[in-house]
Amino acid sequence: MLIDIYHDTVCPWCRIGHKHLFDALAQYQQTVKIRWHPFLLDNSIPAAGCEFRSYMQQRKGIEPQAIEKLFDHVRNIGHAAGVKLDFNKIHLAVNSILSHRLIALAPDDIKNDVVQAVYKAYFEEGLNLGDLDVIVAIGTKYGMNSTVLRLQLNGNALADAVLAESTFARLNGITSVPFYVINNKVKIDGSHSSEVFLQALNRAALIEISTKIW
């Protein structure tokens, strides 16, 4: 079973959706391979970041009180899913391209863990994912060589590839994330419940079986 995941590391709905997906996979009996694909929500944000609440108010076109209500709504949904989204810790809207480059460089056996660590760094600790030291520290925690990683990320390693893949996703009709494709057949748009993901996994398995039969 193959699952392609299109996501951005600064998207709270992606973190919620991933939790639901992995809850479904815990109940699923087949071996699953996951491929992570970048979808940059806003690559125009500078590496230093910009003030989070002002940015979100402008992006959403709503007043300060409304943005706090939105944060409360998303925080509560995250809590129900079992993930922490601490918007009070987040002071910077950040450019996520560096974090996607880290994910691309991470070996397959630790990639899922690195993805979740990146989400934790932003949504629980409020760290700047555009900061090289932050990103290198995450990779090093999971066994990546800090010297090699720093050299790679100080240069342009995979920057063009990340941008191209994000652009390719948009050109192929993906307009929001999270977005999931199971076995190149079943598509899921959004952070649905684990039950919906489990149904989708079973549907994809049935399609694969029927294809082999015919």
Rank of each mutant, 00 (worst) to 15 (best):
Q57N: 06
N172C: 12
D8T: 05
R203V: 07
A24M: 07
D86F: 09
I110W: 05
K185T: 07
I174L: 08
Q58H: 09
G17S: 06
R75T: 07
K185L: 11
S194A: 15
K33C: 10
K89M: 09
I188E: 01
N154D: 11
L41I: 10
T31F: 11
D113Y: 08
S146N: 09
N76W: 06
Y6R: 04
K33A: 14
L92V: 05
S194N: 12
A121H: 01
K111Q: 07
Q199Y: 06
V162T: 07
L163W: 04
T175C: 13
I110Q: 06
G61W: 04
K111Y: 04
Y28N: 07
A137Q: 08
I34F: 05
A80Q: 13
M1H: 07
V134E: 04
G126Q: 08
A24R: 01
V196E: 04
N156D: 10
E68R: 15
I135F: 03
D4V: 09
L206N: 08
K187C: 15
Y122L: 11
H192Q: 08
D131H: 13
A117S: 13
P46F: 10
G139D: 02
K60Q: 09
V162P: 00
Q199N: 12
L129K: 03
V177Q: 02
D160E: 15
V94G: 03
T147P: 02
K120G: 02
I62D: 04
H20Q: 08
N76H: 13
H20A: 11
R35T: 09
D160M: 14
L2S: 09
K19E: 02
S146G: 08
L163A: 10
V118A: 09
V118S: 03
V94Q: 03
L127S: 04
I213M: 15
V134K: 09
A164H: 11
K89F: 05
W214T: 13
N95I: 06
D131Y: 05
V118Q: 04
N95F: 02
Q199H: 09
F179P: 00
F39S: 03
P38W: 04
I67C: 10
T175H: 13
E68D: 14
I103V: 14
K69N: 06
L132C: 12
R35V: 08
A66M: 11
A161S: 11
A204T: 05
G190H: 01
V83S: 05
S210C: 14
V181H: 04
P12A: 14
H100L: 08
N88T: 11
V186N: 03
S166G: 07
V181A: 11
L92N: 01
S191H: 04
R101I: 06
I213N: 10
N172A: 13
I135P: 00
V136Q: 01
A47Y: 06
E51H: 10
T140K: 14
G155E: 08
A159N: 06
P12D: 06
G82R: 06
S193W: 00
L21K: 03
G49Y: 01
V115E: 05
K84N: 11
I77D: 05
E51N: 12
Q58K: 15
Q27D: 14
Q29K: 15
G82Q: 06
